[in-house]
Design a protein around this nucleic acid. Structure first.
Lengths: 216, 216
DNA sequence: TTTGTTTTGACAAAAAAATAACAATTATGA
DNA sequence: TCATAATTGTTATTTTTTTGTCAAAACAAA
């Protein structure tokens, strides 16, 4: 019944970027914007902007452009910024710490409700008002608290095991910070942050650039 | 004179992934691999693997496949894993801390040689054997130490200013952890790690999945 | 050595993504 | 009010990326 218009990942990955730019425009008190002007700011073609936005509906008006606040709200809705996601952090090391202290996540609807680790040094400590629990407590915790997302900042050697564990407990979203590609069920959504991959690409591009070639 | 075969970013961004899988194969003591078998492990088509690798040269042998160690070495060379990059971290907050303590970077050729901040709380502290210096010391530091890459983990409101500052000092590579897109000279290579974008995409996909749609 | 199998590298085809073009619509200013 | 300029949404075109195909090369076994 509902017409399933398939939206490509390429488009979806640009949405947060539109969201950011619109947020900036609002801060600058700019009320309307044309795809042309936005394209100059974002360094992409106006055509792409119009086509991207039209995947979700006609938010603009001919001869006028887009109303910044309206467009912002619509993209918010698409991205689901209105809903809240309960998240746990597994791995209370440096990266886990950094995530737990990152204020913006809760602003965007992602609440850290638990932090887990296995190290006796870490279990019992408090990070940003959240007590670090032992991994053994995880099954019980998930039973009593709804958890949407597990943020995995465990050592590479443990990540597969942990990923299986959290998905078996019914958690459907994984934000994976390890260099390992997780292979889980089709109903589990995995989003990777492969820091070392990113750094290696930077190294490659830098090297090419130093040798006089252009990369992008 | 040199034939500039343009290699697309899509290919380049897959290189670290090949690198990882080959590294794993070596650990498993696997000496040879066909594109078909690698494709099953990596969940991409064999055709893509062969085409990707052929951008850089014929590393395989008909009827045999690819020698794992040789291919690993070749991709290492392409990625520039042999060279070393001197890096500084600007912003000694939680993320800066996490990066400073991440052991794998030096393994891959990225050495953290300095950490900078402006907060009196942080300046003077020692992170992973590196003393945090005040930003005022940066120009002097860059004069006396060669720096390839600045890893920026400063607050969003300061990142533009800092990016301009480091590029004016001649640093050509930027690893940007802020949600802001930096616009710098053509000779500066910027690689972004937009954590909040990634998380928002996870939220979107999770939402879609919960509503019964598939995203990828 | 010979034959059949495997597997690459190259090229062709298909699919996806980005860009361009333009009719339709609205705003703006004379 | 009317004419002109601006700007969208949509369709067409182009470009890029991915996938499929196959001859040629190398291996492996008889």
């Amino acid at each position: 019944m509902a017409e399933e218009k398939k939206i490509s990942m390429a488009v979806i990955r640009r949405l947060p970027r539109y969201f950011r730019y619109l947020s900036d425009l609002m801060k600058l008190d700019i009320k309307r914007i044309s795809s042309k002007e936005l394209s100059e700011r974002m360094q992409i073609t106006a055509s792409q902007i119009r086509q991207d936005l039209n995947c979700f509906g006609g938010f603009g008006q001919q001869g006028y452009g887009y109303n910044v606040e309206y467009l912002y709200d619509e993209i918010s809705k698409i991205l689901g910024t209105d809903r809240r996601f309960s998240c746990i952090i597994v791995g209370a090391g440096n990266m886990g710490n950094a995530l737990a202290n990152y204020e913006n996540f809760s602003k965007r609807g992602f609440d850290i409700v638990g932090i887990f680790d296995v190290s006796p040094d870490k279990v019992g400590t408090v990070i940003n008002n959240i007590k670090v629990l032992h991994m053994d407590m995880l099954p019980e915790f998930v039973k009593t608290h709804h958890v949407d997302i597990a943020m995995l900042t465990v050592p590479n050697s443990k990540v597969n095991e942990v990923a299986i564990q959290v998905t078996e407990l019914g958690i459907k979203g994984i934000w994976n910070f390890s260099p390992t590609d997780l292979r889980l069920g089709d109903d589990v959504i995995v989003e990777n942050v492969h820091l070392s991959d990113s750094l290696m690409v930077l190294g490659y591009r830098l090297k090419e650039s130093m040798e006089g070639r252009k990369t992008s």
